[in-house]
């Protein structure tokens, strides 16, 4: 029995319960697919399902990586050229974090900011989102301002104590 189990784990790579759990998962997904297959718009559901994965894993993620790598490379080049050393209070996060917050809001509220939802909103609720781009810009400005204030405070404290 024990030898059979060991042979199974050598072949499969995990214990049998692992396979049981995964089979359960696939059975549930298959049951959902069977239900959805009756829907005339199943094709669009599949497109959006796969599209969400592709957009995240093959578009967004490489963009994050690219932004991060160019930041590191840019900083290295800057320090090499100017001979600067690491500052006592790092500035990178004070630019990167408000930018991330702003981008997060842009992505989540894209249907409103881009006014994609506006026709239905106007018809159903009698409202528009015409100034939502301005609103997003104001929020973005606020985030950068907040970050700048925190940076100034940290700089002041670093100067006061002589250490970061």
């Amino acid at each position: 029995m024990r030898r059979a189990l060991a042979a199974w784990e050598r072949f499969y790579g995990a214990d049998p319960l692992h396979l049981l759990a995964l089979v359960g998962c696939f059975a549930l997904v298959a049951a959902v697919v069977r239900q959805v297959a009756d829907d005339p718009s199943w094709w669009w559901m599949l497109v959006w399902f796969v599209g969400a994965i592709v957009a995240h894993d093959l578009v967004s993620y490489p963009l994050y990586a690219l932004a991060d790598r160019s930041l590191v490379l840019g900083r290295w080049a800057w320090r090499r050229r100017t001979g600067a050393t690491a500052p006592r209070v790092g500035v990178v996060d004070h630019l990167r974090l408000p930018a991330m917050g702003s981008l997060l809001l842009l992505v989540v509220f894209w249907p409103s900011i881009s006014r994609a939802g506006e026709p239905v909103l106007l018809f159903a609720a009698g409202r528009t989102t015409e100034d939502y781009l301005d609103r997003w810009l104001w929020v973005t400005a606020g985030l950068f301002l907040l970050s700048a204030v925190v940076y100034a405070v940290r700089l002041g404290r670093a100067a006061g104590t002589g250490r970061p």
């Binding site: 997904v29 959902v32 249907p111 994609a116 909103l121």
Partner: peptide
Amino acid sequence: QYDYAWGFDFYTAHYWGAWVFIAGFVV
């Protein structure tokens, strides 16, 4: 945000999407 650009019914897709997620999440 009233954006129904998918080509499918929201309730239907959101319900079935939830079950696919549940299957993946539990395992």
